[in-house]
Design a protein around this nucleic acid. Structure first.
Lengths: 152, 152
DNA sequence: CGATAGCTTTACGTATACGTCAATCGTATT
DNA sequence: AATACGATTGACGTATACGTAAAGCTATCG
C-alpha cells in the first residue's frame, strides 16, 4: 500500500530512492520519508543539518539520506523528547559516530563520556519514577473518591 | 553552618522566615532559599510566577513561599529536566492542585489525565532504556579496544 | 510544452525561557 | 544619617528551535 500510494511521486530523490529497492529496509530515504517516519517537518530536518547534526548526500541538489543518517535522526528525535538540546545531541552524535577509531586517549575519553551519559540517564529515570509515584497517588485518591460518591 | 552563614541576611522575607523556625523543615522560604535549593535563578522563579505556575504570598512586596509553593517548584524543575514545557507543567500542576475536590465528572477527568500521564512517562522510560542500550554498546566497544591496544 | 508535484534556498517571523540592566525601595549595619 | 544588602518591577535583549512565505529549479504526466 505504501508503494502504491507512492506511485505518483516525483523528484530526483524519489526516483533515486525508488530505483534502489523498495522491499523492507531501504538503503536510502527522501526527506519526506524521514519526515513521515519520525513525525518531524522537512524544515526541522534541514535545520538539524544546518546545525551539523546531519549531512546527507545530494542528487541534483535534493537530499538523499542513508540508513546511518536515518539512525542519527532517530537519536535526535528521541533525545529531544527527553529534554536534550540539539547542542547536547550533537555532542552525543559526535561520540556515536566515531565509536571505534582514534588512539587510546580518544577511546578512553569516549568510554568515560558514555559512562557519564548512562549515569545521567539513570538519574533521569529516577526522576520519572518519582513523578509517576505522585501521579499514582493522585489517581488513587480520585478513584477512591469516585467509588465513594457512587456508592452514595 | 547554614544558619551561621545566614547570620548577615536581611530583607523582609528573610526576617519573616527566620522568625518562623529554622530547625529542619521550615514552613516558609525566601526566593533565595528556593533558588539555592533547586539551582534556579531568581529570574526564573519570578518568570514561573508570571506564567501562573507559582503564586507566593507577599510581605512588603517581597515573596514568601510556602511548603506547597516549594513542592510546586520542585515539580516544575523536575518536569523541565524531563523535557516538558512550562505550559505542560502548568496543566499538571492544575490537576495536582485540586486532586481532591470537584464532583464526579471532574474527578473522573483527573483520574483519566493522571493515568495518561503515567503511560506517557513510562513510554519515556522506554526511550531512555533504548538510549542507555546504545551507550552501553559504545562503552563496551571502546573498553574492548582499549584493553586490546594496551595488551599490544 | 505547459502544468503540477516535490524539492531547493533565502529571509524574515515566532514561541519558549529566561538573562541583563536600570531604577527603586525597605531593612539593617556602621 | 549614610551605606550596603537584598528584594522588587519594568524594559529590552538573547538563545534555541523551528514556522512561514516567496521564488526558483527539475522531473514527470497529460
Amino acid at each position: 500500500m505504501k508503494a502504491a500510494t507512492k506511485k505518483a511521486r516525483k523528484g530526483a530523490a524519489k526516483a533515486f530512492v525508488e530505483a534502489h529497492g523498495e522491499a523492507e529496509a531501504p538503503d536510502f530515504f527522501s526527506i519526506s520519508d524521514l519526515s513521515e517516519e519520525f513525525g518531524v517537518t522537512h524544515r526541522a530536518i534541514r535545520f538539524y543539518e544546518t546545525k551539523g547534526l546531519l549531512s546527507p548526500k545530494r542528487l541534483n541538489g535534493a537530499r538523499i539520506y542513508s540508513r546511518r543518517d536515518r539512525a542519527r535522526l532517530r537519536i535526535i528525535v528521541r533525545a529531544k523528547s527527553l529534554g536534550y538540546t540539539l547542542e547536547d545531541t550533537k555532542d552525543y552524535l559526535d561520540l556515536y559516530g566515531q565509536q571505534g577509531e582514534g588512539r587510546i586517549k580518544q577511546l578512553e575519553i569516549t568510554a568515560a563520556r558514555s559512562a557519564e551519559m548512562i549515569a545521567e540517564l539513570q538519574a533521569k529515570k529516577q526522576q520519572i519514577d518519582e513523578q509517576i509515584e505522585e501521579l499514582r497517588l493522585i489517581n488513587e485518591v480520585c478513584r477512591r473518591k469516585i467509588t465513594k460518591k457512587k456508592a452514595r
